[in-house]
Design a binder for these strands. Structure first.
Length: 494
RNA sequence: GGUCCCAUCGACUAACGGUUUAGGUCGUAGCCCUCUCAAGGCUGAAAUACGGGUUCGAAUCCCGUUGGGACCA
């Protein structure tokens, strides 16, 4: 294997947004490619005509780009989808652009006696399934149409029936493979039925299109969710029947579940990647959290730089058990990333998502300073607007509870008057000097510094919680601070 | 119903037969730091699903049971 270049793919169906599970699969493939110097391919499996939408294709592009999961081969977004699909070199990555290829291979199987036409109606199949259920058998196709004579076929055709093409599964023996994460897995061929490879419409089914494409795209490793585990022997059988050599190595990743142990779904809250962006998560957080869902290092390292993640990743350290998605840990991790991300980038991301307005230099500079003061308290980018609001507003909104607690006291007037005097007498509005002045006043009044700090904080910000008081005063600057203290003395204290 | 997969604190996981009084992280409880809120530091509670084997020794290997999941749909 070492002399062959590694090629992996992520092959989503565009039947909805890119969700947590899909993103995790994409990430693991991406990591595997990066780590091995291989190629990461994006392929759009849009053969479910009824449910596939262009909107979903765009959502997949957008989500993967946001996460930084760049692909080496595949459709190139940017142009309109129409354009992407019609271009010869990009079209190959949409399965609906490749229908003739699948049909050709289906014909080959037909010719080799490895597939056959089936004229059974869905009603007949439904009935057969019911009977099997009653007889406690497995639900598999009877193989009835395998033995159809040419006259019978002609008669069906004469009735206007369109056949599907079924794969002729060997009845004997086993199909097995060495799973990259689970080890040896074997299936009895007798348990695998003659599944449909080409629908009456001429459109291939998932297993068939996937197998043909993986072969033609020279995929070497397939990392996918373990919901595909039972598809794998079918695909291996197809490889053999089609005469495809170099069957890829398969690795089946465990599922991601919601807190109640059921497969992660809409009712557990946000499942789409873009929702997390809207909620104010950083892409680095999502990537880091996702890699921990089903993979770990020997020392259970939690936080990874991207390069480090690539370097340490390995498929054989993927876990076999399903993982429950934990929003609390995700939130914690976002706080970690917010704290270590440069403020400039925080502002850029928040602004792009429309969480903040930094449309001119003045706003930008003030926001930058404000976010620096608040950075360690920010968990989500969506927190920024509220946390920095009072720096921007002309008129402060005073929290009634805060006013009640710290301003409606017998001493508040005296303290704020004292502070007003001290502040008005100085031109040195640095945080060091401001702190010195506050502490001086405390000594003069014979009270604890905290008794000064709290009313001043509420007077200038309207809140009891917030950043370091002196950094806040310095940033607000003398004029605003004096203004707000005046307002407070006039309207809020006893 | 059949087949396949899985099973360590509430959650993510480590320990790939002996270094284990089962480690780390989130969450949670308490304490410390502190102008508030955070952040940080320290300490605690908290798990090998169950039953049989194999072995001097089992979370780890085997079998069964139970439970969960996936696929057939």
């Amino acid at each position: 294997m070492s002399d062959t270049k590694i090629r992996v793919r992520f092959a989503p169906s565009p039947t909805g947004y890119l969700h947590i599970g899909g993103a995790r699969t994409a990430l693991f493939n991406w990591l595997f490619a990066k780590k091995t110097g291989g190629t990461f391919i994006l392929r759009i499996e849009d053969t479910d005509e009824a449910r596939s939408t262009d909107e979903s294709v765009n959502a997949i592009f957008e989500s993967m780009q946001w996460l930084g999961l760049d692909w080496d081969e595949g459709p190139v977004p940017g142009a309109s989808l129409q354009e992407i699909k019609s271009k010869g070199n990009y079209g190959p990555y949409f399965q609906m652009q490749r229908i003739d290829i699948y049909q050709k291979y289906a014909q080959q199987l037909l010719k080799d006696g490895k597939a056959y036409h089936c004229y059974c109606s869905s009603e007949e199949l439904e009935q057969a399934r019911k009977d099997q259920l009653e007889n406690k058998g497995s639900l598999k196709y009877s193989g009835k149409c395998k033995k159809l004579s040419q006259e019978e076929k002609n008669s069906f055709e004469a009735q206007g029936k369109k056949p599907v093409i079924r794969f002729n599964m060997p009845a004997e023996g086993k199909t097995g493979f060495d799973d990259l994460v689970r080890g040896r897995i074997d299936f009895e061929n007798a348990q695998l039925d003659d599944f449909v490879i080409l629908k009456a419409s001429g459109i291939p089914t998932y297993n068939f299109a996937c197998t043909v494409d993986d072969h033609l795209m020279e995929i070497t490793h397939i990392l996918r969710g373990d919901d595909h585990l039972s598809n794998t022997p079918r695909q291996i059988q197809l490889y053999n029947a089609l005469g495809f050599k170099n069957i890829p190595l398969f690795g089946h990743l465990s599922m991601i579940l919601g807190p109640d142990g059921a497969r992660l779904s809409k009712r557990h809250g946000a499942t789409s990647i873009m929702e997390y962006r809207q909620q104010g998560y950083l892409p680095e957080t999502i990537v880091n959290y996702l890699v921990l869902l089903g993979w770990s290092t020997v020392d259970s390292q939690q936080l990874f730089e991207k390069e480090e993640m690539i370097q340490k990743f390995s498929a054989d350290r993927c876990s076999k058990a399903a993982a429950v998605f934990d929003p609390q840990k995700l939130l914690w991790m976002n706080g970690e990333y917010v704290r270590k991300t440069p403020v400039e980038r925080l502002l850029e991301l928040a602004s792009k998502s429309g969480f903040i307005d930094i449309s001119n230099d003045m706003k930008y500079n003030l926001m930058k300073s404000a976010v620096s003061l608040e950075q360690e308290k920010i968990k989500l980018l969506t927190d920024i607007a509220y946390k920095t609001e009072f720096f921007f507003k002309e008129v402060v909104e005073y929290d009634p509870k805060a006013v009640e607690k710290t301003l409606k006291t017998p001493v508040a007037r005296d303290i704020l008057t004292g502070i007003k005097t001290k502040f008005s007498e100085t031109q040195d509005f640095t945080k060091e000097n401001l702190e010195k002045l506050c502490r001086e006043l405390a000594i003069e009044k014979g009270i604890k510094p905290g008794q000064i700090f709290h009313p001043v904080r509420v007077a200038v910000s309207g809140r009891t919680e917030g950043p370091c008081l002196f950094g806040m005063l310095a940033l607000l600057a003398k004029e605003r601070v004096m203004q707000r203290i005046d307002y407070t003395l006039k309207n809020l204290v006893q």
